[in-house]
Amino acid sequence: MSKIINIKAAARGKAGKGAARAVRRTGLVPGVVYGDKQEPQIISLTYNAVEPHVQTGRFLSTLVDLEVDGNTVRAIPRDVQFDPVKDRITHVDFLRLGKDARIAVDIQVHFKNQEASPALKSGAVLNVVSHTVSLYCPADFIPDEIIVDLTGMQINQSVHLSQIKLPDRVTSASREDVTLCAITAQAKEEEVVADAPAAADVPASNQKAPDAAAAPAAGGKAAPAAKGAAPAAAAAPKKK
């Protein structure tokens, strides 16, 4: 079960973009609390009270006890907005939770015992399909994580959410059976060995011209044959 964090907030009377900008100019973060069939409540929070929880990466699946001017409101963060340039938190939405409320939350998926998978030990690849899964659960019982045990996994095997034993009162919020991961064989790189080009394949522009000494000049004598070369064939006699 996720732990419950406490954040102090203050009620503010005015809503709208102008009022929110005025709150941000004072260094505070504007927010709103809605749900549970009650009127939305406009609040402001100190930046340092919110930012460390946002940085954990689990803020949107964490229960919060908001202390608003002495009253405690059980809620869960539903949206965090950031400045596109400065990347600072500019607004936070909270969903008020009533008694026995059930909500859909995104829970992180973690994988363990990779070393106990014969496929992964032999060089196969673990392809993670879903890093988070949407679960429907009681507001006071939100799982911290979903664990996928890879022990004994072979090549071409996959794991779906239906194969994971979920905690009591926790079900999938998706109508489909979500694929969490799959193990595939590692692709082997083909080694290409380039053969040396044959003489006939060499372009004419790159072929070496015959030695000038071997070809007789016009009107001149032919160069003497190399020592050991076969004698040239005798010329045929001219007919009279």
Rank of each mutant, 00 (worst) to 15 (best):
S158I: 03
A217S: 13
A194H: 11
Y136E: 09
V202R: 10
A187Y: 07
V148T: 00
T171H: 12
A215F: 14
V193D: 13
D201Q: 12
D195N: 12
A215M: 14
A187H: 07
A196E: 13
P167D: 00
P210I: 00
V193G: 09
P197F: 05
A223F: 14
Q186V: 02
E189G: 10
D177P: 12
P143K: 02
K208V: 14
K221S: 14
S134C: 06
H160I: 15
N206K: 15
A223Y: 14
I142L: 13
V193C: 09
A222R: 15
G219I: 12
S172L: 02
V193F: 13
I146R: 00
D140S: 07
A222M: 13
Y136F: 10
S172I: 03
E189T: 13
L166E: 06
D149T: 01
D144M: 04
V202N: 08
A218V: 14
K221A: 15
E189P: 05
A225T: 11
N156P: 03
A233H: 06
P224Y: 00
N156Y: 10
D201K: 02
G228W: 02
A194E: 11
P224I: 06
V202G: 06
P224R: 07
E190W: 01
C137W: 02
A199S: 12
V148F: 00
I155W: 04
R175I: 10
L161C: 00
P203W: 01
C137E: 05
D201N: 12
V159M: 15
E145R: 06
R169W: 09
A229R: 10
K165H: 14
E191W: 02
A233Y: 05
G152K: 06
V202I: 15
L150R: 08
I142T: 07
A217V: 12
P197Y: 08
E190K: 09
T184W: 00
A230G: 06
A139Q: 08
N156G: 05
A194T: 14
A198K: 13
K165P: 01
N206R: 14
I147C: 01
R169P: 03
P216S: 01
A194Y: 10
P216V: 09
G219T: 03
L135G: 03
P138T: 03
L180F: 04
D211T: 09
T179H: 11
P138G: 00
A187K: 09
A173W: 05
V170H: 00
T171C: 01
A212K: 05
A185H: 06
V193H: 14
A204F: 13
G228R: 02
A233G: 08
V202C: 08
L135D: 01
R169D: 15
D201R: 04
A213W: 11
A194N: 10
N206G: 11
V178L: 00
E176L: 09
D149M: 05
K227L: 12
F141A: 08
P138V: 04
Q154S: 11
K221P: 05
P138A: 01
L180R: 05
A218G: 07
I147Y: 08
S174E: 05
E191P: 03
T171F: 03
Q154L: 08
Y136R: 07
A198Q: 12
K208E: 14
Q157Y: 04
I147W: 06
T184A: 11
A217K: 15
G220P: 04
I146T: 00
K227F: 08
L150G: 02
A209N: 14
K221T: 11
P231G: 02
D140I: 04
